[in-house]
Design a protein around this nucleic acid. Structure first.
Length: 451
RNA sequence: GACCCUAUGGUCUAGCGGUUAGGACACCUCCCUUUCACGGAGGUAGCCCGGGUUCGAUUCCCGGUAGGGUCGCCA
């Protein structure tokens, strides 16, 4: 029998990075084994749910490329879905839960108490066979000793998480439950319920949690906790996927950069680590840079234009050829698209603000006549391309008896406002002779050397 | 409080009784270079503690400690 796995998020308005990894591991297992990946929306908490909150989940999974074989097609709980085991929204499965509760009631495995329905929990320790952790024996805690039974259906008629989760997994034919380790202890309840229904529980694989750098639990407000952040900040899904794979799973051969296809090939449950991992944003950024550098030009332009738009710069007001030429000088230089507007904004606006730390070093009196001489040399150039610019600059430097850097630094600052940036020769070519000269002249005035 | 899981440099990890404890990120130095980045060459830094088992423990066992999780009419 082919495995059937599921990702069952609750629509809270954001998708936790740990949840995204749980989805990823389920998806990888399904793809590795040729099984089925089911998406089920646990929208039992009516007060918190909205289609917008479901969209966050759907969009996040789509962005990562984690396609589901069964589940909703839209964020509308009553809308279309794919698969034979629906509905895939818990809010649409009320009758199933009611029927299951009545079955337990009629067989004396559950009972009413204060208007709620409680499950007769076994008093014996339960062994949880876990594919990652091994056999875990879970006895009752001291509080559970007082009253081991637990609520299946609240007095207001709402079934609780543990109940609906088991009913759905049972009815959807889930064979492997891959989820966060925070559910490990609760699995005893789930196993007892499956047995009460007369079926063998699925196989369990509890994966370690993702923690903050300080070891604390990653919650909604923590930096990097929301998948949407990466989507909005111009990260690449392939980089995020790659990084997530490396948290709690290892290819064991020192490979760091793996495509999803590679991981599908090599992924399996026993290789999953047992200890929690701390989220290392720096390493994610490194991987992002690796993927960013290898991006096909068209995709790079697309993401770059989006990043500028987000920063309030409409690159569509410039000629396409100019924009592409400008962006080409940035390729391989930046790691995240979020840094692009600051890095290359000088291409798209004329107001250059000189870096306050670099200006006093570059705009010194002895450099002024040098830059004036360079300006004259530029003015004499018939063709203003990178090679000519480089030649002119080097010739000028030689005539002045200074290193090229002496001219390069003030020129870069005058033209871009920054001490760092794309190749000077190439960016000058893209900017064009008129604008280059204009910016150099301004720097020679009171706002630059004049100060 | 009870129960469960975990423990290799700052971080992610390889290791499954004998290794100069390997790789990656980050950090430092140098080289390349018009800056930055890339690339290249080096470097700092690690087996939580204590008992066993063993000829020999990072590795196996027990205890401790630390971190995380669970014990809801939250999910």
């Amino acid at each position: 029998m082919k495995p059937r796995v599921r990702f069952a998020p609750s629509p809270t308005g954001y998708l936790h990075i740990g949840g995204a990894r749980t989805a990823l591991f389920n998806w990888l297992f399904a793809r590795h084994t040729g099984g089925t990946f089911v998406l089920r929306i646990e929208d039992t908490d009516a007060a918190r749910n909205s289609q917008a909150a479901v969209d966050v989940i759907l969009n996040g999974l789509r962005w990562l490329g984690l396609n589901w074989d069964e589940g909703p097609l839209t964020a509308d709980a009553t809308g279309a879905s794919q698969g034979e085991r629906g509905p895939y929204f818990q809010s649409q499965r009320k009758e199933n839960y009611q029927r299951r509760a009545e079955a337990l009631l009629s067989r004396g495995l559950a009972y009413e108490h204060d208007g709620a329905i409680k499950f007769k929990m076994t008093r014996e320790p339960i062994t949880i066979p876990d594919l990652v952790v091994g056999n875990v024996v879970r006895p009752l805690t001291d509080r559970e000793e007082q009253d081991p039974d637990w609520v299946l259906v609240r007095s207001d008629g709402q079934p609780v998480f543990h109940f609906v989760n088991v009913v759905d997994d049972l009815e959807m034919g889930i064979t492997h439950v891959i989820r966060g380790e925070d559910h490990l202890s609760n699995t005893a309840k789930h196993i007892a319920l499956f047995r009460a229904f007369g079926v063998e529980p699925p196989k369990y694989a509890h994966i370690p949690l993702i923690l903050n750098r300080d070891g604390s639990k990653m919650s909604k407000r923590d930096q990097g906790a929301s998948l949407t952040t990466y989507l909005e900040e111009g990260f690449l899904p392939e980089a995020v996927n790659n990084y997530l794979c490396l948290l709690g799973w290892s290819p064991k051969d020192n490979t760091e950069k793996l495509s999803l296809a590679d991981v599908i090939d090599r992924f399996d449950l026993p290789q999953i680590l047992r200890h929690n991992a701390k989220f290392d944003f720096e390493k994610l950024v490194w991987l992002q840079g690796e993927y960013c550098r290898d991006l096909p030009p068209e995709r790079f332009y697309e993401l770059a234009v989006h990043a500028f738009a987000k920063a309030g710069v409409d690159t569509n007001q410039f000629a396409t050829g100019y924009v592409k030429a400008a962006l080409d000088t940035c390729r391989g230089k930046i790691k995240t698209f979020a840094e692009l507007p600051a890095y290359a904004g000088f291409y798209f606006h004329e107001e250059i603000t000189y870096d306050p730390e670099a200006a006093p070093k570059s705009f010194v009196v002895e450099n002024k006549p040098r830059v004036e001489k360079l300006l004259a040399a530029f003015g004499n150039l018939a063709t203003f391309d990178a090679a000519s610019i480089e030649a002119a600059l080097k010739t000028t430097a030689a005539e002045l008896g200074v290193k090229v850097g002496v001219l390069i630094h003030p020129t870069r600052l005058a033209v871009t406002g920054h001490p760092h940036g794309p190749s000077l020769y190439h960016l000058l070519e893209v900017l064009g002779k008129a604008r280059a000269i204009q910016r150099l002249e301004r720097a020679l005035g009171p706002e630059g050397f004049g100060k």
